[in-house]
């Protein structure tokens, strides 16, 4: 379980870091629009929220990968309770 948690959180952390740098080098947070309004947070806040946003999205992808990686046996485990 701990291992899976790491598989989900760690690669997504690294990729979120890269995405954050790439995105905010190209885009000035003060030029962003949120729900049609210019972003009124400080740049520091936008960077930070942006980072956690990226992290969350990447973690979701990692989680999905982990989920799909379970072998057919694990997925079907509950169907064969008597097989043991």
């Amino acid at each position: 379980m701990r291992q899976r948690l790491m598989w989900v959180l760690w690669p997504s952390f690294v990729v979120a870091g890269v995405a954050e740098i790439a995105f905010f080098t190209l885009v000035d947070p003060q030029e962003l629009y949120l729900f049609g309004e210019p972003v009124y947070f400080s740049r520091m806040a936008t960077y930070s929220i942006g980072f956690f946003g990226f992290w969350a999205v990447c973690a979701a992808a990692s989680f999905f990968t982990c989920f799909l990686q379970r072998s057919a046996k694990e997925v079907n485990a509950h169907r064969h309770p008597a097989a043991h």
Binding site: A77, H78, P81, H84
Partner: peptide, 10 residues
Amino acid sequence: MSSPNPVPHT
């Protein structure tokens, strides 16, 4: 619930 090791693993 399912048994811990329902299908023998290699």
